[in-house]
Design a protein around this nucleic acid. Structure first.
Lengths: 146, 146
DNA sequence: TGGGATTAGTTGCATAACTAACAATATGCC
DNA sequence: GGCATATTGTTAGTTATGCAACTAATCCCA
């Protein structure tokens, strides 16, 4: 059924491109306007460390859906910015445990507030039930491909 | 209302990260398995040229939601691969019109088929009405931020 | 007609992504 | 104990993105 395929082709562009990059760009812009000088990718790493400090790089890979080289470099850059510190695990010396610095801890409230405001901008005029349904669909997509 | 904010924070991770990158990665993998040696970003440019050949770089920016430098470099790489040709417009010599080569035209059927199959994998178990609603929500998000 | 503003595209710089290959450490089995 | 295997993280190479500054061509309007 070619009609259905065309519809799905259009959806593809929505899922892969427009909405997610639009939100990412807006969040980055809002960070900048508020004087927060980190990238959204760096923020996404901090986000998981705020929930639980001292994760290993592998755990950060799983949490952020990035591969190992990506996390290596993000942690490199976060270390340069003095926002995290690598600490080699005593139990397993292959592992680095990543700990927040005081500076990074102080970023949490402000940046979470900016992220929530950005999401409010993005979801203006969308009902809560529609948001939930959309969330379920995207989760299903993720589960189908994982 | 902190509960609502938490929910939206979770949604943020879905929209920006998981589903869209999962589809993109799967599509890239499927291209590779089928011996198609282009990136999905390059494919997205060809996709719009298949619909209408001879677009300007600015029109490609609008169609693919990328900025001008991104399109400049994608077209650079597509030219190196001999998939497109820049032709300076006679009406307005600032503009480059981008034309498909025969090689690129031959890629259309196969890659569109792979993209549709990938989308079928991704959307397995999701009803058409839910897909449409999700599509509307993502469009609304895009419109809110554009 | 002339000169400022706009538009199309390019280049430079920094960050980030994926793949593949690699080093170091840990595990497990004989 | 020792060697194959698996796991954790790093490095190298290519591609892509965003921003800012730049060139060239066109437009506009006084």
């Amino acid at each position: 059924m070619p009609n259905n395929q065309f519809k799905r082709g259009e959806l593809y562009s929505f899922i892969t491109g427009k909405a997610s990059t639009a939100i990412a760009r807006r969040l980055q812009k809002n960070f900048k306007q508020q004087g927060v000088d980190i990238t959204i990718e760096q923020w996404s790493v901090l986000y998981h460390l705020w929930k639980q400090d001292g994760l290993s790089q592998q755990e950060l890979c799983n949490a952020t859906f990035r591969d190992k080289p990506s996390i290596t470099r993000l942690v490199d850059n976060l270390e340069k910015l003095k926002l995290v510190k690598r600490v080699s695990s005593k139990d397993d010396r292959r592992m680095n445990l990543i700990f927040l610095t005081e500076t990074a801890r102080r970023l949490q409230d402000n940046t979470m507030e900016i992220a929530n405001q950005t999401l409010n901008e993005a979801l203006e005029g969308v009902s809560v039930t529609d948001i939930d349904l959309c969330k379920e669909v995207l989760q299903q997509v993720y589960d189908n491909l994982k």
